[in-house]
Nucleic acid binder design. Sequence first.
DNA 1: GCCGGAACGGCAACGGGTTGCCATGTATTG
DNA 2: CAATACATGGCAACCCGTTGCCGTTCCGGC
Lengths: 362, 362
Amino acid sequence: MPDHTRPPDRRATIYDVAAEADVSPSTVSRAFSRPSRVNSETAERVRQVAERLGYRTNPLARALTTSRTRMIALVIADITNPVYAGIVRGAQETAMHDEYTTVLIDAQESDRLERAAIERTMSTVDGIVLASSRMSDSAIRMFAKQRPVVVLNRAVADVPCVVTDNPRGVRRAAEHLGELGHDHITYVAGPQASWPNGIRWRSLLEAGMELEIKVRQIGPFSPTIEGGERAAEELRARPATAVLAFNDQMAIGLIRGLTRMGVDVPGEVSIVGFDNTLAADIVTPGLTTVAAPFYAEGSAATRHLLTMIEGAPGHTGRPMVLPVRLVVRHSTAARDRSVGRARPWVRRPPTLAARLPPPSKQ
Amino acid sequence: MPDHTRPPDRRATIYDVAAEADVSPSTVSRAFSRPSRVNSETAERVRQVAERLGYRTNPLARALTTSRTRMIALVIADITNPVYAGIVRGAQETAMHDEYTTVLIDAQESDRLERAAIERTMSTVDGIVLASSRMSDSAIRMFAKQRPVVVLNRAVADVPCVVTDNPRGVRRAAEHLGELGHDHITYVAGPQASWPNGIRWRSLLEAGMELEIKVRQIGPFSPTIEGGERAAEELRARPATAVLAFNDQMAIGLIRGLTRMGVDVPGEVSIVGFDNTLAADIVTPGLTTVAAPFYAEGSAATRHLLTMIEGAPGHTGRPMVLPVRLVVRHSTAARDRSVGRARPWVRRPPTLAARLPPPSKQ
DNA sequence: GCCGGAACGGCAACGGGTTGCCATGTATTG
DNA sequence: CAATACATGGCAACCCGTTGCCGTTCCGGC
């Protein structure tokens, strides 16, 4: 016979409470999980005893039979990327509101790590939000078969997805540059494996067609400040007057690289970024950029996941699309028509900003 | 009698594997958790069958008996603060290396939220790292009684702590400013509840004593760019030539605010920040700042926590101290002696950087 | 006074592993 | 060759709740 007298350091269980309140363990269980199923006076007594004994129901034991842990996993590609802070906040607040706990997994931009981490975590969570997954579509679908999954920032067939309105963002950026007199936009590409990178380029192609603006692409480069600086060097060989960068980090790298080369931003080259991270507001000149609603992304994806967990069918048709907006700052300006198209950049003494030190590692 | 023929969608259990491999469930269990306890050929066979059936041991079920979940909680004060990215990385990589999963909790700078989240999570994790906790010492000690806890960026009696060498960082900053000819340093304070804020000010008092530099404090201000801008306004009434800010965000706000007021940084005022966030390298002029080893902090705290979980006694003597270094950029310069002490700031036309727009929300 | 049904509480079988203890068979030792 | 030790594997209890099912009790209605 199990001995349910407990040493004082052990946490109280329903058995301890049951013994003390002189009811059966099942009654204690029901007093908490299905109060309507038990006499209100009894329930009250049980709750009093539980309180006195410091009883808390053990979520693990509960999960074992209900197979619900009230935990969800949020997988992000790179926690050092500030973009994810808002997403995490949105997801976590939404989850917390429904009394779910969020397990954050940082995949460190690695397909392999991402898979391994998910595999280890999957059985302990009720569902998964994949923000900017680096895994293949088929891998994602495989996970989606075993647990509710919502994909963020990417469209995967047969899996519920939440994306931002990349086409509209690109379109707005192109319009803005067009209005400033630019008739040619260079897209500085990020990682080829990145889904947003692909759709941004395609959207630019389309927008260019409609607005009668020529477009071209250079890259891919790493989606970092260093990547942007490398792109600046490449731009030296094939100058441009208007640049759309894959993200803010790269745009900032471009500003730096160009400025250091003596090219005036926005005087000679206009630059538009993507994401509207805090840094866009700090860099000189302030970066014109397409702002995405990160908090709303995390929140929407999580809310959708929670409804799926509650049993609703995942909406696997078209992805849910969230609106974006263009934030105009000082990195874009009217095209300088005095400068010839063929060789617009003249060597000139570095401007103030060119005295910036080379980027140093954090 | 339990029927262990399983529908194909259910995950395989040790019972399925046992039946298939023609051994008892306990042998399957041991084949994974204590391979030495079972014949190597048998173990191999079991593993093969398990592989074929796609068996994974259910961590919840395991936790129920072992009361080890191989999960740890990492509680941070504010995920939108880039400072925590490195800490999270360090913690997570260290945990992952030992096959632990990290549950990230964002307390959103709220004592209440922090407590509630920990309370809900505590029973499902083996230990907790509190990075910049906003709770009271006694609340922290209470949690520490129930689970292994390591505190980061704060010293709490009777609980293992990991801190950075704030005194040395402040000292190095003061020396640097002293060498540049500054004989007076103004400390721009962050949140009073913040432990680092207190120790930084006390360290500055001490350093000032030794180096014969006068010090004073203004604030507290919110530890954000806006807070820094507000501090800049207050500085107008009580000018300074050298400022040490609680963190980089505030330092950047100071640079902005002062520049907009027509004050030259570093010509008229030298500014030093704390943390060496990415933004310190992006702002113009580049921010001189005290760099903390975030990754190492997260890593060290986690490693210590893991040893405690494995049964080692927590080292509750002096906190573990991690080294810092001063990163000199362009926000500090020799004191401009042509400017009078009493009223150093002359109104003058805004410099280039003063054309910056006011800060806009993300 | 009898009957059907609701309210309430307990029993016992799970869920999926872990582990102390014992039984058997084999290897080692004197 | 007997005695002992060790290697293996199975039994069954246990971790801590949850829940289907059944027995009582009590109530209102006829």
